[in-house]
Design a binder for these strands. Structure first.
Lengths: 321, 321
DNA sequence: ATGAAAGCGCTAACAT
DNA sequence: ATGTTAGCGCTTTCAT
């Protein structure tokens, strides 16, 4: 029996008689044969991999996105391969270079801001490229995400409508976290339109944790004790802030309101539910994967805009009707 | 100039004059050339990938392990490729099959319990295989981890020494979470040796969250109101239990003690610090990566046993001297 | 339904 | 320091 027949059986391609098929399968099993995809990929010029490039795994956001991607790729024969950039454009460039050298069937990558070389590589790759999370800017091929500017604006509008006026911000100071930056831009724009401005800011570097949220909140409230609202750049920091305020006996939502961002349900059991915005993480992963897999057609404008949705929680006053 | 010279430049191999080297590099850059690793791998019979197979990304444990692996592989030219099994041996088998078909340089995978076919594949692969997290059992090649039986025993011993006697357990009921199972085995063994036994158990399925921890704690304390200690199978569930007990006004550590497992620092800012065991996640990742990369020699017994370390926290009584 | 031949894009090994 | 040749293990294509 030729190797050709074996190849046909193992890929369920072409006509093979049930008898030989059976023989090949059992032989492969007993020999513990694992086909060599390197040779296969070289011969067929196709590889069932999708490169997924994200900034971090410890940020609770990305496991959710990956979950959406996996779920949607599961029945397509495509496999995600994850690369992590640590929010460094230089590292992103290296990761992309490495991944593209494997000639994947598509690329999903977080964010719109990439080095010139990265953009060139992606443009020349001749494969679907889906940039996710953010839609405020120019894309290379297709975008799937939410407008963080809008998310920031909407939260500001809710806060103002609820009557808060002395507002502070606590967030990351990573120049490379463009989405956090855009949320703040939208937030401040909306404040400005209402004749308001941020009364205080507190920035931090590195990962987010409850403890950091506590410390920063303590610090900003020491510096600016008369704040009546704090907008945090994510839920983990926000939850830390919430715990601090509970500790200190603040009247949450009355004396001081709080809001985070993301809508991570890991934190649902806190003593008070944090007001936040659902960033539609799983859905973003799903839609991106569907496009790469060719399950969805790309919209004409090449943008899939999902809507960030407000989660009221209990740390903001209700708006009187 | 032959393609061979180009190949040499791009891999920094063999002697190439500085002049031609320069020429090749600029040409590659302007053309946006990305070498084809599929062809390269086939020709050289070597591929700079390390397969990393883990059960889940949403479990806070694994991003930490991956962090350790990445950090240690960073300067080796090796690249981790992550596969997720969702705690399913069948899925693990598929993931392994897929990954091995790319002929990686090594495999790091969580746990010691694998399907027969998985073991056969790994045994035949002819590459370093490091099983991580757990050392209670037989390995295929090399093990790096902690003894969960011992971790369970040690926590039980501390709890008993602190004077608690009516002890309950809250944990996952996933038959495939062998490490949680082994901790419980060790825990109960130690109780039995002291003439004690678990007074109540509460199991759950699916992922862990603060909310689930609250609900389960409420339930177990309703059924068995006179418990004086709760051992949780992880910190997230334990933190939920802690929040519930705080809510209900329990005297934490006095009236009821609590302990989790893992030592995740994300939760450090809780109102009361949870007693737990540090599972040495980052170190496990590092050591496994060092072995796969050939930085460390494998110990003669093929086991790298790390010590789970007790973190006292504030939810257990201090032992009187 | 099965087989034979060519070749995918590189690199190892051996010239020069 | 640079070039030549063969071949990695498959799949594509074309025969039979």
């Amino acid at each position: 029996m030729s190797e050709m027949t074996v190849s046909r059986v193992l890929r369920n391609r072409g006509d093979v008689s049930a008898a030989t098929r059976e023989k090949v399968l059992t032989a492969a099993k007993t020999l513990g044969y694992v086909p060599n995809k390197i040779a296969g990929g070289l011969a067929s010029q196709r590889v069932n991999l999708v490169a997924v490039v994200i900034p971090s795994l410890s940020n609770l956001v990305f496991p959710d996105v990956l979950g959406g991607i996996s779920a949607e790729l599961d029945d397509t024969g495509l496999q995600p391969v994850i690369g992590v950039t640590n929010y460094s454009p230089a590292r992103e460039e290296m990761v992309l270079y490495d991944m593209l050298s494997w000639r994947p069937s598509g690329v999903i990558l977080a964010g719109l801001e990439h080095s010139k070389a990265s953009c060139a590589m992606l443009g020349n790759a001749g494969i679907p490229v889906v940039e996710i999370m953010d839609i405020d800017g120019e894309g290379i091929d297709t975008l799937v995400g939410i407008s963080h500017i809008r998310a920031g604006r909407e939260m500001a509008a809710r806060i103002i409508a609820a009557g808060y006026r002395r507002i502070g911000f606590v967030g990351t100071h990573m120049p490379e976290d463009h989405r956090a930056r855009k949320r703040l831009v939208g937030f401040e724009e909306c404040l400005a339109e209402a004749g308001l401005h941020l009364e205080a800011r507190e920035y931090y570097q590195g990962g987010s944790s409850l403890l950091k949220g506590r410390e920063l909140t303590q610090r900003i409230l020491t510096r600016a004790p008369d704040l009546d609202f704090l907008y945090f750049s994510n839920d983990m920091i926000g939850a830390g802030g919430l715990l601090h305020c509970l500790d200190k006996g603040y009247d949450i939502s009355g004396q001081i309101g709080l809001a985070g961002f993301n809508g991570v349900d890991l934190l649902d059991g806190l003593p008070v539910r944090l007001t936040t915005t659902d960033a539609r993480r799983v859905e973003i992963g799903r839609r991106a994967a569907r496009i790469v897999a060719g399950k969805d057609i790309t919209p004409p404008d090449r943008i899939v805009a999902l809507q960030p949705t407000f989660i009221a929680g209990e740390t903001i006053r209700e708006i009187k009707p």
